[in-house]
Design a protein around this nucleic acid. Structure first.
Lengths: 259, 259
DNA sequence: GGGGAACGTGTACTTATTACACTAACTTTG
DNA sequence: CAAAGTTAGTGTAATAAGTACACGTTCCCC
């Protein structure tokens, strides 16, 4: 039985399940999403009409969902050890139908109506100083401001929407915003990040008060340089201190947002 | 191509994706989980050694994930319009392997190493006055206290754990506890429900103060009868009032728990 | 009618949230 | 080199929320 499997071009790949990643980045001004256009080839009409889509792929039979998402991300960005979290599975019967190309022919005969279920992840990338390169399955890669996401392939607009909601929810439970910033950052940058994700203005003094009180930031011996205004103090996030905070507040949310 | 599909016993069923439900109930004392033992038959060794398992099933090609979960629940309990929410997909490569029975033989040849991905839902049932009957795919059905869940089939223990965490999280964001109680209930019962889910004691006066202040409960003209202590006031949850609360507090959690 | 059991209530203290405006430090421009 | 532009950085007073805590009440049962 393995013999036949090995002769199939897609052996070892699960034709029913994919992962898709909503990759967020922050350029100190806006929240952005990384989208791709697929290469020509057998997958071509999966993203019909050249539309932009979320990076994603069918999973292999030997990898977990998390691993598959990490693989997709790695293939696309070359980055590893990136914040990655599953947030929802999508499986409406009309969402994605596999194309009836030769490679899946056997399978299509047996499951003419099956659709692809996708497990969606969101991912946070320090886009500071990182420009994604088209590679592997992507013909084209680009960051889009979250407010200017075009019509995407399949149900990917819905997935982006849900991903943003998930990000907002989790931002108020854990300090994941730092995953989107370089090691050193200013409080102003951090506040703009929170405002970009939550999509509302926050009071500067209250935000700083609440953030500093958590005692998870350490001020560096360094200030901004070359800015046309009063230079800001740099801080970094202290993982160790956050772990301590967490231990003392086992059940509580990590909420730095004035409601 | 449909011809061949129709001759297959499992046509229209997706062999790679299932849904599983963590069904919670509350008997005024403990939080409970509904588990099943499967019927003998082709599925028999899916739940090896007669172990208890979560209710679940492979999905059909013509239904959404939510629909599939609702179907499983309906087949099992006869109940409909029950609180049901997806919380996580599980897909470790070693979690569940399809058995190589005759029905899936074609498929098994092509995907010898595929495993079943499952999308897990949690569900809240008013178990008050409801006794589940073994039916459809279940040989045996029973409620287990959340602290006394036995060794389950596959990775179902892990799924139950995650389901409880998801329930705890969401209980602090929305007033879903009422889904586990009958229409009329006392504040004491409500508090015990919160304590059972969150697994810690809450201060009675503070809990009542916070809960009543939300203005989502209405006192009924009725008190407990036949109890060997001072009879408690009955209340009911007012969905309309909660909708109003929600509108006024768009971003906030619905948190009635003294931290 | 006494004991057992859960119900129902209030207050004083501490902590968190909110709203709000000006000076400081740097660059650029004229 | 002075003025304009820009963001940084800071404090307080008023209100709201959270916390800790104890005792009389009302029913049933014996």
């Amino acid at each position: 039985m393995d013999q036949k499997a090995k002769t199939l071009p897609n052996a070892g790949i699960n034709p029913n399940v994919s992962v898709d990643c909503v990759i967020f980045g922050f350029d100190f001004e806006e929240l952005k999403v990384l989208l791709i256009q697929r290469k020509e080839g057998p997958d071509q009409d999966l993203a019909r009409e050249g539309r932009w889509a979320l990076p994603g792929n069918l999973i292999r039979d030997d990898e977990s969902l998390d691993t598959a998402a990490g693989r997709v991300l790695g293939e696309l960005t070359g980055l590893e050890r990136i914040y990655l979290q599953q947030f929802q599975a999508f499986g409406n019967p009309d969402r994605v139908r596999r194309q009836a190309d030769a490679e899946w022919l056997h399978y299509m005969r047996e499951q003419p109506n099956a659709r692809v279920i996708t497990v969606a992840y969101f991912s946070l990338v320090k886009l500071h100083g990182f420009e994604p390169q088209p590679r592997s399955f992507a013909r084209n890669v680009a960051w889009f401001p979250i407010d200017e996401v075009p019509d995407l392939a399949f149900d990917h607009n819905e997935i982006v929407e849900s991903g943003l909601l998930a990000l907002q929810r989790i931002l108020r439970q854990r300090p994941i915003g730092f995953e989107l910033l370089p090691r050193k950052f200013t409080l102003g940058q951090l506040q703009r990040l929170y405002e970009a994700i939550l999509r509302r203005p926050l009071d500067k003094r209250n935000f700083r008060k609440k953030m500093l009180k958590k005692d998870i930031l350490v001020a560096l011996d360094e200030k901004q340089q070359g800015v046309p205004h009063k230079p800001a103090q740099y801080y970094r996030f202290d993982k160790q201190k956050y772990a301590e905070w967490e231990e003392k507040n086992l059940d509580a949310d990590f909420d730095v947002v004035p409601v």
